[in-house]
Simulated assay, not measured.
Amino acid sequence: MGVGPFATDTYLAALPELQRSLHASATVAQLTLTTFIVGLAAGQFLIGPASDAYGRRRLLIACSVAFAVLSAVCGLSPDGAVLVAARLVQGVVAGGGVALGRAVVTDTHAGDRAAATFGLISSFTFLGPIIAPAAGGAILAYGTWRTVFAALTLLGMLMAVAVTLGVPETLPPARRHPAGLRALGVRMAGLLRDWGFMRHVVLQCLAGAGFFTYIGGSAFVLRSVYGISATRYTVVFATNAAAMAVFSLLFRLLVVRAGAARLRAIGITVSTAGAAGLPVVALAGPHSVPLGVPWALLCAVVGGMGFAIPAATALAQEAGRHSAGTASALQGGLTFLAGAVATPLTGVFGYDTLLPMAVTMSILYAAAFVLMCVMTDRSPRRAKTLTS
């Protein structure tokens, strides 16, 4: 489940070098990130529902092998067009792994126990943004962006071995749904009409779009506005990711007592408060406000997601338990799709100031906060706890 963040964050610092190496524009360089996120969404839509009919294990193995092959193709890409296309398909198979991972947890856990498990998995998943930039920086010190993809090829091979040896089939034939596009359409349509499920997904999409705006724009904005080096940006990014990992560990410890909905409310509130401070900092300008202030605000945004992400995942999967793979596909796919739409917005309005990224993030998180308040007001009893 952590391969998506790892495959994006490892080469974030190499985007300027990638642009120069392939003689591409900044837009094409960022498209290698955007198309991967689109692929993550598409892979969840395609492979998650298929697993409800065919089981989880063999699809997990296939996705791991394909990820290794496509990583090698990315590393050998002769130009930007080939790299963008390869990243799209690589995202598809990575997204399949993410959807299948959530479905496996839902197959084997329920209620607050499932929420605690998602919190534990999230804490390891969030280590990706900590380890990946550091690993990417070490690779770039001795190699190029192509070497980064060679390392991802090795990661894919290790995943294939680990899944083959360590993940049994969790969906026996007796619990599977009918195969075919018509049956899939019926399952998806049923979940899309179910507001008890979709309210969690919509909230997750809004917060996720704000989060992806930070992921896609922070490298360019912080380096151009504050003039920090790639190494220092890696420290900023890793520190924020560490805050998210710590919050997710706290989530695992607190969720049985406090409930997933309450912890999600805390996480969204913290993230919204951090995002709301960014436009003020942007208007003041980098000469008036030192880097430490926007860094602290971004850390609050990212840290709050350590509560919000596992909570939203658990609440949505519980609401869609009867079709766990399809529910995983919709909640993950729609969230990444929202992120893919939001990621280029900062680039459209420019990287010369912090303001475009700050305004976009604050609007998205404010919308998530308002929806959360409406949901809580209308469903006070259900918002208190997550039950099986």
Rank of each mutant, 00 (worst) to 15 (best):
residue 51 S to Y: 14
residue 58 R to C: 14
residue 267 G to W: 09
residue 266 I to Y: 12
residue 17 E to D: 05
residue 134 A to I: 06
residue 245 A to K: 03
residue 41 A to M: 13
residue 359 V to T: 05
residue 77 S to P: 00
residue 352 D to I: 03
residue 255 V to T: 09
residue 270 V to L: 05
residue 194 D to L: 04
residue 269 T to W: 02
residue 304 G to N: 04
residue 335 T to C: 13
residue 23 H to R: 14
residue 109 H to M: 10
residue 265 A to I: 01
residue 248 S to Q: 12
residue 11 Y to M: 14
residue 110 A to I: 04
residue 132 A to R: 05
residue 259 G to S: 14
residue 233 Y to V: 09
residue 15 L to H: 09
residue 39 G to C: 07
residue 162 A to D: 00
residue 68 A to G: 12
residue 32 T to P: 06
residue 45 F to M: 07
residue 95 G to D: 02
residue 141 A to G: 15
residue 105 V to K: 05
residue 341 V to G: 02
residue 361 M to Y: 14
residue 91 G to C: 11
residue 202 V to P: 02
residue 169 E to D: 11
residue 383 A to Q: 09
residue 52 D to V: 12
residue 251 F to H: 09
residue 238 A to C: 05
residue 120 L to W: 06
residue 303 G to P: 01
residue 342 A to V: 07
residue 196 G to I: 14
residue 54 Y to G: 08
residue 91 G to E: 14
residue 302 V to Y: 00
residue 263 L to E: 12
residue 138 A to I: 03
residue 253 L to F: 12
residue 358 A to M: 13
residue 48 G to M: 10
residue 198 M to H: 02
residue 51 S to I: 14
residue 72 A to M: 12
residue 176 R to W: 15
residue 234 T to I: 15
residue 324 A to M: 12
residue 24 A to P: 01
residue 15 L to Y: 06
residue 246 V to D: 01
residue 292 G to V: 11
residue 129 P to R: 06
residue 200 H to M: 10
residue 59 L to S: 10
residue 146 R to C: 11
residue 296 A to W: 06
residue 114 A to I: 09
residue 384 K to Q: 15
residue 308 A to N: 09
residue 127 L to A: 09
residue 229 S to R: 05
residue 157 M to E: 15
residue 41 A to G: 11
residue 321 R to I: 13
residue 62 A to I: 11
residue 273 A to N: 08
residue 203 L to W: 10
residue 247 F to R: 02
residue 227 G to P: 05
residue 106 T to H: 00
residue 257 R to H: 10
residue 87 R to D: 03
residue 80 G to M: 02
residue 50 A to W: 02
residue 340 A to I: 08
residue 206 L to Q: 10
residue 20 R to C: 04
residue 180 G to C: 15
residue 125 T to I: 04
residue 334 L to G: 07
residue 1 M to C: 07
residue 140 L to Q: 09
residue 302 V to G: 01
residue 266 I to K: 07
residue 136 G to L: 11
residue 75 G to S: 07
residue 365 Y to C: 15
residue 344 P to N: 06
residue 217 G to Q: 12
residue 28 V to N: 00
residue 260 A to F: 08
residue 186 V to Y: 06
residue 350 G to M: 15
residue 82 V to T: 15
residue 265 A to Q: 08
residue 36 F to I: 13
residue 342 A to E: 10
residue 95 G to P: 02
residue 372 M to L: 10
residue 119 G to N: 00
residue 93 V to Q: 04
residue 89 V to Q: 01
residue 304 G to D: 10
residue 386 L to D: 04
residue 327 A to Y: 08
residue 297 L to G: 05
residue 98 V to M: 15
residue 225 V to N: 06
residue 245 A to R: 07
residue 291 L to E: 12
residue 116 A to N: 01
residue 382 R to V: 03
residue 51 S to E: 01
residue 40 L to Y: 07
residue 259 G to A: 03
residue 288 S to V: 15
residue 9 D to Q: 02
residue 342 A to C: 07
residue 95 G to V: 09
residue 216 G to V: 00
residue 30 Q to M: 13
residue 356 P to E: 00
residue 10 T to N: 04
residue 6 F to R: 11
residue 72 A to T: 09
residue 250 L to P: 02
residue 172 P to F: 06
residue 220 F to W: 14
residue 227 G to Y: 02
residue 363 I to E: 05
residue 192 L to F: 15
